[in-house]
């Protein structure tokens, strides 16, 4: 990722879309963190298998925050099974960048991992 693309993403970081808690979410995972300094909660509202709304809350870096924000945007209207099929390549595409550097992979994936965790924990009845 070059600096110009980074500064474009940092514009989205100032006021990211889909930030805020969804009350009565059907799926949620709170305070998820994998790399130092990122901590996100994620929420999904579903109707049948369809994702009606997706959101996140918390703080992270430009990469993690813009990635989870764009992921929410992408997921709305999709089938819930979309999430488990997604991987790093999909996040790189959402961010509009080529291969992300190895030190930022955790940042790029933290939102997706939180959503995957939300679904797993619902299925295993943690909530």
């Amino acid at each position: 990722m070059d600096e110009d693309r980074f500064y474009e993403l940092s514009e989205l970081y100032k006021n990211p879309k889909h930030k805020g808690k969804i009350e009565n979410a059907d799926y949620k995972y709170e305070d998820f963190s994998i790399s130092c300094g990122d901590r996100f909660s994620v929420y999904l509202k579903t109707e049948g298998k369809k994702i009606k709304d997706a959101s996140f809350d918390g703080n992270g870096c430009v990469i993690s925050t813009v990635a989870v924000s764009k992921l929410c945007d992408f997921l709305i209207g999709k089938d819930i099974s979309t999430i488990e099929k997604m991987d790093l390549k999909d996040i790189e595409n959402l961010l509009g960048i080529g291969k992300i550097s190895s030190s930022r992979i955790d940042c790029a994936l933290v939102g997706l991992k939180a959503f995957k965790r939300a679904i797993e924990s619902k299925n295993s009845n943690i909530y």
Binding site: E3, F6, S10, Y13, C36, N59, G60, C61, I63, R104
Partner: peptide, 23 residues
Amino acid sequence: PGLHSHDVAFLLDKKGIEIRSGF
């Protein structure tokens, strides 16, 4: 303000400046 420390480290690295970020 307006950037996470990882982002600051990322941008400095582009110029060859190696610092630490995070906790």
